[in-house]
Each structure stands twice: as structure tokens, then as C-alpha cells.
Design a protein around this nucleic acid. Structure first.
Length: 903
RNA sequence: GGGCGGUUAGCUCAGCUGGUUAGAGCGUUGCGUUGACAUCGCAAAGGUCGUUGGUUCGAGUCCAAUACCGCCCACCA
């Protein structure tokens, strides 16, 4: 019974929470260089990430799993490199989203927020937050997030609220915030303004209505006008035609009559009008259409609002007052038809603006709101990326970023909600002036009166999240954290919030701190279902990360997300992939079992280290190669590719080949066994270190077992037995340049692999029973030394009879009753007498020969052409070597064929 | 209307500065109780890298055009 008997299967359930608590208890998530602790060194540059704060009452979804995995990978990698790292966690109050949840809960009690009043509503929301606010952060912990939880923040914290007020007041004092009536996007269901970004457009079938605008001056005469929204006729203040449109030129300046209402409005000329569309004339509704609003400003037109907060027709709508906007549409149209004012209706595809949150149709309305004059901030934000102070990965998103900022409109920041940062503006009942203040004022700053009332509105959630990278570090106070950890290093998030969040953080960071908030933006893609469809509850294709973690382990999910994604590209997730990676975790585990057993069985007190075997050299070279590649890929943010390469190395090279050969070397006893145990331990150790940022739990757990086994058996793989206390803080493997011997060893080992594969292949083809050991004759002039040294390995891997192996430089006659194989410079003969079929053999040899000859021909042409002169010498030499090998192979194949003919 | 991404094996995808026989996982087929692992092993089948043209000694990789799929921005009522 081995001393270390690990279970056969990796048990993630019993591991993950224990390991997480252990890391946390040992303080590994905290920065190793902390400005609030003794021994702080301000010259060491930290690596800092601010977490994209999830909605405080949200539930974990795959988007969270994605960014947590990615950021945790970045953090763990840098931590292992010895860089002081800080990952600041926190949550967002998510104004609209949270308020909607509370309102829904209220609705179930048959209440509205207006009924219970603001104070009571906020109390309930806070209670809700207290109750559910911990769930999401708990779930993020389950993913293995190595955040410094002592620095956790919430956007409505006192400190962050101070930051929000500071930001608002500064902008106001600089004249970059203003209040006024403007056409904004109104959400009638939520009864609040929303920003342009919060409106989504969807193509939907609708109707284009044609009707008559009767001329006031000449009865019976009319201008035909088309609209998709007849109810807005009630708010028309002009009819516009193109100035050069001959049909209507005569009417310009005349009056037309608004249907049903009978108001007179004038016909104006504006180049915006498209003569081809509809009748060529445009009704102008400045109060409910952005383009019409612009026209109205050019022509100084009156602006009429016809809808109230709930999008019901108001008193400007005459007989339709009180009707819902869609109801009014039908009724007005019916009345117009009765009045003979309609022309026709035709089907038409509309682009309907809908609320990102509620999904209802957004109504453009004129409303008094607070705005940020964004242009100066946008210019600075553009400059920071243009001059390279901030780098966006993948690079193509910089163009998207530029395009948005170059065409940006002022930002409507006030929301008619209750849950959020209340606007720090007070209105004086005595003098009517505004007091804008960082602290709650007791008196009007203008008249000194005490009759102050605070603006009832709150700020857009993104206003506070825009301050996140520095508000979480203590800004506006100049705290030690802010001084040391700001600017942060990496902003990792989904490309879908590039505008909402990233751009605004850059604008705010530059404006308020005078510095960039982070130097790199890494954007990951969205996660879709197996077919590439968006996951949504209505499709029923949502994958719940918690279920996946429960069933297959956190590491399997993390590895799938990390390795399955390419920067900026969406990924399609299927459970099959997670399953494959659960199997990988299990593979790791079982290699670990093998290694711990080997350690505990290895002989003690080593003598001098024996020469490395070919396999030893090969695996070291491969591993070193891997370390270098991973480092390069990490530097280029190619995390997925790095993970894939580690996977391939671990399974395809280490487990499939080296471990199999190691079994032989271990059975040799004494020093060879000791050093082989040491080698597999070292290779595993480095593999675990490389994998740790991807799959932290299984690697940490396994590494702990390896460490204990080594310590108990005096096997030192770290100098002086100086083991790191935990894998999470173990040093990252150092890249090294090759020493020159690697290529030859790689070529020799690859020959061994090819021989083994060829023999296995033939055995399978001929139906030789697995396990049956057969004799073999190896013939090669150039490689007999390699073959001799590898006889045991060849015998074991290809199931040959070691006692009946012949290795020779040349053979005069082909052995009777053998099947011959040619692998490069090596011939192998296997005595499969009963299974030899002359015709089959000839066919096989001819096929191989034909292939080789084709290659020879190709290479001869290649090397005879301009390639030999123009290609780099190293590339040419490689091809020449190949040709030489092919020629030898061809020759040997030909000899075998000849032998077959003559027998 | 403008911009971006994708198109590689039956499916889902890698393939990063061009190097000459294009990879993985899953699936399929055949064999298998080799004391790490059946969440496994061995072997096999399977691809004119969307199309056309160009640059180059050399193109899945670079350039141009084009088709289809998807996304973002703008929003002609």
C-alpha cells in the first residue's frame, strides 16, 4: 500500500472551499507591499485591477465567471512573478436594475413606491441590499477570485458618495454640468430619463400612414405627408419641404391646418427633407422627435409636448387628452379618415427605440434634466489613447472607441429614480437660486435663507461607476492607497461596456485625477450558447455557472472560459467542453498520484547524478520551450493559446510519453530511479505553477501533496528544500534561452516516437493482440547508437520482446517472414509470418514509396528553384535535411520492394 | 448609411511577427482489465483553410475585390 494514497478521482467538492479559505486565512490575497503596513517600499511598481463591480443584488452568470477567471489569471500570474498585486473587489448599486426589483416586490404587495414614499422605499432597498448583497460576492469567491476582500467597496458607500459629490461639484464649478430643458429619451414605464446608450433599436413591422395637410389659404389644396406615428400630428408645429422641390415651392411660407385640432402651422423649407420619401414633405414634431427638434431649432419653431410622464396625451392633445399614445394613434387616424384627410396606409419596417431595461418603447420628450458637457472630457480621453498612454487590447477596438468619442453627445445624468446618488443641488424657495454643495447645506448660498429643497433626482449609475478605479482607493482624499495603487494597471471587461463604462472611466479619471485610470484595457467577448445564440431565459439556453461548478468543478469551468476564448471574440460554450476540461483536471490529479507514489517509493541517499537519458533531455527541452512560449504569449495577452499549449504539453508530452518511459527508469532502481522521481516531480511542479492561474484549486491541492511527499522523503526540488509556503505564492517559472543541445535530442526522441507509432500502427492493423510481446530487428547505420540506448523504451512502448531485439547497422538479406517498416533512416522488421500477405505488403510499400517520392520530387523542385537563393539559409537547410532523409527512406523502401519481388 | 468580426475536419474552435505534409476537443470506427488515470490508453478515418485575383522563392497567415453569417454605431419621417 503506497504511503500516499490519493483518491483515484479528483474530488473538487471537498477541495475548493477548503483551499479558498486557506488562501484567505493566510492573507495571500493581500498585496505583499502595502502602503498601510510597515516595511512598505514605494518604489516597487504594483499591478492593480479594479473589478468590474457586479450589480449588488445580481446573481452570478457566465459573464461574471468570464471576467473573474480572466482577471484572477492576470492577478495570480503577477503575484507569482513577485509583483505586489491588488485586486479591488466591490459591487454596484445598479440604480435602475435594483429599483425595478424592489418595485416588482412592492407590486406583489399591491403597492407602488409613491404610496410608501421615498424614505420608506429607500429603507426597503437597503434592507434588500443587506439581505441579498452578499450573494454575488460569495459566488465570486467560489470562482476562486483572489481579491483583497478587506478593500471591498460598494458604490453607495460613504466614501464613494463623497467621491460622487466631489466629482459633480467640480464639474459644475467648471461649468461642465448644466441643467435645462432638452429633448431626451424618456422611459414611460420607469418614468425617468435615460441616456442615449440605454436605448436599443429593434426592427419591427409597422405602418406608414399617408395623409393630407390642408392648405389654410386655398381650400381643397393639400400637401401629402407620411408618418409612422400619427399621434405626433397633435404636436406638429410645421410642415417642411425641400427648398428646391418644385411641387411645393409655392407653398413655402403659407399655412396648413393641423388635422382635427385645427391649429395653423406654417410650411417651411429645409434641406433635411428627402424629396423621395413619402410625399416629399415632412411633418415637424419638435417635442417628440430628435430630427424635428433640430429643424425646430434652426427655424425657431414652437415646441409642443403632447405627452405626459406616462406617455398619455396631455391637454395639448385636444379631444385625445388622457389617452395612451397608441390608443390616441388609432383614434386620431380613425377621426382623420372620417374627415377625409387620410390617403393610404402601407406596411413599413420601423426601427423602434426600446429601453435597455424595461424593453418598452422609448419616447423622445422635452424635459428638464442635468447634463454633462462632454466634449472637453471626450477630447482628453481621445488623446490618452491616441498618444498611447492607454492601450486597448485587441487593438481594433481603439477605432470603435475613437468613433464613439468623436461623435459623442452631451450626457444626460439625471434619473427620476430614488435608488442612487442624489444630485447635490438644493433649490431655494425664497430666492429661487440653486446651491450646489459637497456637504448638505443649511442655508441658501445666495440669499442665506433656510428654505432649501434638494433636487429629487439621482445620478445615472454610470456616473459613479465612472469614478470606480480611484473612488475605491480613497479619492478624493489623498490616501496611501490612492497614492500607491493609482493609476491602476489593467481594466479587464467585456467589449459591450466599452462606452458605458470604460470610456467614462477614462474621461473621469483624466478630469478628476489628472491621470489615466489604467494603462491597459483588455476586452473579452460575450459568451453564447453552443450554436452561437445569445443566452437568455426566454430561449431556455442559459447555462448557470454555479451548476456547472457543482457538477464539474470550478477549475474545469475556468479553464474552459480561459482557453476557449480569444481576445475580443465571442465564444460559444458547451458543456462538452467543460467536461473535457474536467477530465483534464482529473488527468492532472492522476499524474499527481503517480508522482507522489513514485516519490514515496524512490530510493533515498542519492549518489552522483547519472547522465540524462534521451527522454530526460527531451522533456526538459520541451518544458523549457513551453515556459518560454507561455511567457511570450502572456506578454501578448494570448492567455487562451498559452493554456492550450500547457494542456498539450502536459497531456501529450509529459503524461503520454515521458511518464511511460519514467516507469521504466523508476524500475531500474538506485540513482536512476531517484533522479527520475526527481525529474517527474520537477516537471510536475513547473507544470502546476504554469497552470495555477488557470486552474488554481486542483493545482494548489496537488502541489500541497507533492510538497509533503517530497519533504517526508527528503527529495529536494527547490534549492535547500526551501519550498514556498503555497503554490499561489510560488515563483513563476523563469524563461531561459536554449543551450544548443536541444534540437538534436528533440530529433532523436521524435524518431523514437515515430518508430513506436509505426509499430503500434502495424500491430493494430494486423490485429496483433495488445500485450503480446514480439521480437524485432532494427536496422540503421546512422541511428544504431540511439536505437541501442533506447531499446528498453522502444520495447516497452511498442510492446516488443526485449530479449529478442536485434539492432544492427546493416542487413544483407531481408529476414524471412518479416514485415518491414521504414521510418526515416531506420528499418524495422517484425516477424509476423502468419500475417504476411505478399500483395498487401507490396501495396503498402508501394503506397509509402509513392508518397515519399512525391515529397522528394517536391523538395527537389523547391530546392532547385529561387527558394534556395532567396529563403533564409536556416529554412533552406531544414528542407535539405528533409530531402536527405526522404532519399534514404525511399532507397530503403525500394530495397524492401525488390526483396519482395525476388522472394 | 458607416465600421468591425467570422467563414479552417461531422460539430465547437485554435492556428499571434508569411517558412512549404494545417492542429485540438467532442463525435465516428476498430482494439484494449499494460498496478497514475475507463473522467483512461492505443490506432484509424475525416480538411482544394468561403470565392476570385494579387504580392512573394513561399500565403490558412499579407493586400484587393466578392459572397454569406453575426455584431456595433448612426437613425429618412
Amino acid at each position: 500500500m503506497p504511503e500516499y494514497s490519493l483518491p483515484k478521482t479528483y474530488d473538487f467538492e471537498s477541495t475548493e472551499q477548503r483551499i479558498y479559505a486557506w488562501w484567505s486565512d493566510n492573507g495571500y490575497f493581500k498585496p505583499t507591499n502595502d502602503p498601510n503596513q510597515p516595511g512598505f517600499d514605494p518604489t516597487r511598481k504594483p499591478y492593480v485591477i479594479s473589478i468590474p463591480p457586479p450589480n449588488v443584488t445580481g446573481e452570478l452568470h457566465l459573464g461574471h465567471a468570464m471576467f473573474v477567471s480572466m482577471e484572477d489569471l492576470m492577478i495570480r500570474y503577477h503575484r507569482m512573478k513577485g509583483v505586489p498585486t491588488l485586486w479591488v473587489p466591490g459591487t454596484d448599486h445598479a440604480g435602475i436594475a435594483t429599483q425595478l426589483q424592489i418595485e416588482k416586490a412592492l407590486a406583489r404587495e399591491g403597492k407602488t413606491r409613491e404610496q410608501i414614499r421615498r424614505e420608506e422605499f429607500l429603507a426597503r432597498t437597503w434592507a434588500w441590499k443587506e439581505k441579498y448583497g452578499g450573494i454575488i460576492t460569495q459566488q465570486i469567491r467560489r470562482l476562486g477570485a483572489s481579491c483583497d476582500w478587506q478593500r471591498e467597496r460598494f458604490t453607495l458607500d460613504d466614501g464613494l458618495s463623497v467621491a460622487v459629490r466631489e466629482a459633480f461639484v467640480r464639474l459644475y464649478e467648471k461649468g461642465l454640468i448644466y441643467r435645462g430643458p432638452r429633448l431626451i429619451n424618456w422611459s414611460p414605464g420607469l418614468r425617468t430619463a435615460v441616456s442615449d446608450l440605454e436605448v436599443e433599436y429593434s426592427e419591427e413591422p409597422g405602418t406608414l400612414y399617408y395623409f393630407k395637410y390642408m392648405l389654410a389659404g386655398s381650400p381643397g389644396d393639400f400637401i401629402p405627408v407620411a408618418t409612422t406615428r400619427p399621434e405626433t400630428i397633435l404636436g406638429d408645429t410645421a410642415v417642411a419641404v425641400h427648398p428646391e422641390d418644385k411641387r411645393y415651392q409655392a407653398y413655402i411660407g403659407q399655412n396648413v391646418i393641423v388635422p382635427i385640432l385645427g391649429r395653423e402651422i406654417s410650411v417651411i423649407a429645409d434641406e433635411y427633407v428627402d424629396r423621395e420619401f413619402g410625399g416629399g414633405a415632412l411633418k415637424v414634431t419638435p417635442g417628440h422627435d430628435p430630427n424635428d427638434y433640430a429643424i425646430a431649432q434652426r427655424h425657431n419653431l414652437q415646441m409642443i409636448s403632447i405627452l405626459d410622464e406616462a406617455a398619455r396625451v396631455n391637454s395639448n392633445g385636444g379631444p385625445y387628452e388622457g389617452q395612451d399614445r397608441f390608443e390616441a394613434r388609432e383614434n386620431l387616424w380613425a377621426d382623420m379618415r372620417t374627415a377625409g384627410l387620410t390617403i393610404k396606409e402601407e406596411p413599413y419596417t420601423l426601427n423602434v427605440p426600446r429601453s435597455q431595461r424595461g424593453g418598452e418603447i422609448i419616447e423622445p420628450m422635452i424635459s428638464t434634466q442635468w447634463f454633462v458637457n462632454i466634449q472637453p472630457l471626450a477630447d482628453a480621453a481621445l488623446e490618452a489613447v491616441r498618444d498611447g498612454r492607454i492601450k486597448i487590447v485587441p487593438e481594433r477596438f481603439t477605432k470603435v472607441y475613437y468613433n464613439w468619442l468623436e461623435n459623442i453627445e452631451d450626457w444626460c445624468i439625471s434619473r427620476q429614480l430614488w435608488w442612487g446618488h442624489r444630485i447635490p443641488v438644493w433649490y431655494c424657495a425664497d430666492c429661487g437660486e440653486m446651491t450646489v454643495s459637497r456637504d448638505d447645506p443649511t442655508a441658501c448660498s445666495h440669499c442665506g435663507g433656510g428654505n432649501l429643497e434638494q433636487d429629487p433626482d439621482v445620478l445615472d449609475t454610470w456616473f459613479s461607476s465612472g469614478l470606480w478605479p480611484f473612488s475605491t482607493l480613497g479619492w478624493p482624499e489623498d490616501t496611501p492607497d490612492f497614492q500607491y495603487f493609482y493609476p491602476t494597471t489593467m481594466m479587464e471587461t467585456g467589449y459591450d461596456i466599452l462606452f458605458f463604462w470604460v470610456a467614462r472611466m477614462i474621461m473621469s479619471g483624466l478630469e478628476f485625477t489628472g491621470q489615466i485610470p489604467f494603462d491597459t484595457v483588455y476586452l473579452h467577448g460575450l459568451i453564447r450558447d453552443e450554436q452561437g445564440k445569445k443566452m437568455s431565459k426566454s430561449y431556455g439556453n442559459v447555462i448557470d455557472p454555479l451548476t456547472v461548478m457543482e457538477e464539474m468543478g470550478t477549475d474545469a469551468l475556468r479553464f474552459t472560459l480561459l482557453v476557449g476564448s480569444t481576445p475580443g471574440n465571442d465564444m460559444n460554450l458547451s458543456l462538452k467542453k467543460v467536461e473535457a476540461n474536467r477530465n483534464f483536471a482529473n488527468k492532472l490529479w492522476n499524474v499527481g498520484r503517480f508522482v507522489t507514489n513514485s516519490i514515496s517509493q524512490a530510493p533515498a541517499s542519492p549518489q552522483a547524478e547519472p547522465d540524462w537519458t534521451l527522454a530526460d533531455s527531451w522533456i526538459w527541452a520541451r518544458l523549457q520551450n513551453l515556459v518560454n512560449d507561455v511567457e511570450r504569449l502572456f506578454q501578448n495577452y494570448q492567455y487562451g493559446e498559452a493554456g492550450r499549449q500547457i494542456y498539450d504539453f502536459f497531456w501529450g508530452d509529459f503524461a503520454d510519453w515521458y511518464i511511460e518511459i519514467a516507469k521504466l527508469q523508476l524500475s531500474e532502481g538506485s540513482d536512476r530511479a531517484y533522479y527520475t522521481a526527481s525529474t517527474i516531480t520537477k516537471v510536475l511542479d513547473i507544470s502546476l505553477r504554469l497552470l495555477h492561474p488557470f486552474t488554481p484549486f486542483v493545482t494548489e491541492e496537488l502541489w500541497g501533496h507533492i510538497k509533503r511527499a517530497c519533504q517526508d522523503h527528503d527529495l529536494n526540488i527547490y534549492p535547500d528544500g526551501d519550498w514556498p509556503p503555497a503554490l499561489i505564492v510560488a515563483p513563476w517559472p523563469e524563461p531561459r534561452s536554449p543551450e544548443g543541445w536541444e534540437d538534436e535530442k528533440a530529433a532523436d526522441f521524435s524518431l523514437v516516437q515515430d518508430i513506436v507509432r509505426a509499430i503500434r500502427n502495424l500491430r493494430a492493423e494486423k490485429g496483433v493482440k495488445p500485450g503480446r510481446r514480439i521480437p524485432a530487428i532494427f536496422v540503421s547505420e546512422q541511428k544504431s547508437a540511439v536505437l541501442s540506448s533506447q531499446s528498453r523504451a522502444l520495447a516497452a512502448l511498442a510492446q516488443l520482446d526485449l530479449d529478442q531485439l536485434t539492432i544492427t547497422g546493416r542487413l544483407n538479406t531481408k529476414p524471412e517472414g518479416h514485415i518491414g517498416l521504414v521510418i526515416g533512416p531506420v528499418e524495422v522488421y517484425l516477424p509476423l509470418s502468419g500475417l504476411v500477405d505478399q500483395r498487401e505488403e507490396r501495396a503498402r510499400l508501394e503506397k509509402d514509396l509513392a508518397e515519399i517520392k512525391a515529397q522528394v520530387e517536391r523538395l527537389e523542385t523547391l530546392l532547385g528553384g529561387a527558394f534556395a537563393e532567396k529563403a533564409p539559409p536556416a529554412v533552406v537547410r531544414k528542407e535539405q535535411d528533409k530531402l536527405a532523409t526522404y532519399l534514404v527512406t525511399a532507397e530503403k523502401l525500394q530495397l524492401q520492394l525488390d526483396a519482395l519481388e525476388s522472394s
